[in-house]
Write a protein that binds this DNA or RNA. Structure first.
Length: 197
DNA sequence: CTCGGGATTGAG
DNA sequence: TCAATCCCGAGC
């Protein structure tokens, strides 16, 4: 194995694009956390796009609040929030200011320094030591940033997002993107469990 | 201030 | 199928 000598932060213009483009292009990229002399790295294999004012699955659909305000700000900043009282979810803000949008990072493959499972939004934040202290931080520089992927491009498919059944027609939008060749996707597309309603 | 629910996970 | 667990946002 060749040690990866250096990770280079993706710049703001990478994130200041359409949310779907960013969500797709983050697949295969590295999520890097450098904190306290420790480096933790994961290869992103699953993302979801939360885009615009009308997306009812998005926190931003009810307008700006204290919690979601970072989604209305400039691209390339972290949005970290606590869900179900125990799990942190990591997002990176996309698009232009005043247009609320972000990409949820849902799963990474362990590359360096991670602990436990990282195949799930709550699991990857736990495994990489990410909590709400990272909220609002600039994600184009340490302690948390993204770095371009290496090797062959991932094979991408789009599916509906997870856990947003309350969002009406927006629950069906194919705004979840996964690398089908990865074994670390939170919910593999292989079987469609029976529909319950 | 009270109340209801959630971009999840793991157990039963 | 359901509980854990607590912050946030809405409403009184």
């Amino acid at each position: 194995m060749t040690p990866r000598s250096r990770y280079r932060p993706l710049a703001r213009d990478f994130f200041a694009r359409s949310t779907e483009s960013v969500a797709r292009d983050l697949l295969g990229a590295f999520l890097v956390v450098e904190d306290g002399g420790q480096r933790r790295v994961g290869r992103i294999v699953e993302t979801e796009a939360y885009d615009g004012f009308d997306d009812r699955a998005s926190h931003a659909s009810k307008g700006p609040t204290k919690r979601n305000q970072v989604m209305f700000g400039p691209a390339g900043h972290s949005y970290v929030y606590l869900i179900y009282g125990m799990y942190n979810c990591l997002n990176v803000v996309t698009a232009e200011p005043d247009y609320p949008a972000a990409v949820l990072i849902r799963a990474v493959e362990p590359v360096e320094g991670t602990q436990g499972e990282t195949n799930g939004p709550g699991r990857l934040t736990r495994g990489m030591g990410i909590d709400r202290r990272y909220n609002l931080l600039d994600a184009t520089a340490p302690p948390l940033y993204y770095s371009a992927g290496t090797g062959p491009a991932p094979q991408i498919i789009a599916t509906p997002r997870i856990g947003v059944d309350y969002a009406g027609e927006w629950a069906e939008a194919k705004r979840r993107f996964i690398d089908v060749n990865s074994e670390f996707v939170s919910r593999p597309p292989i079987k469609r469990s029976r529909k319950k309603k």
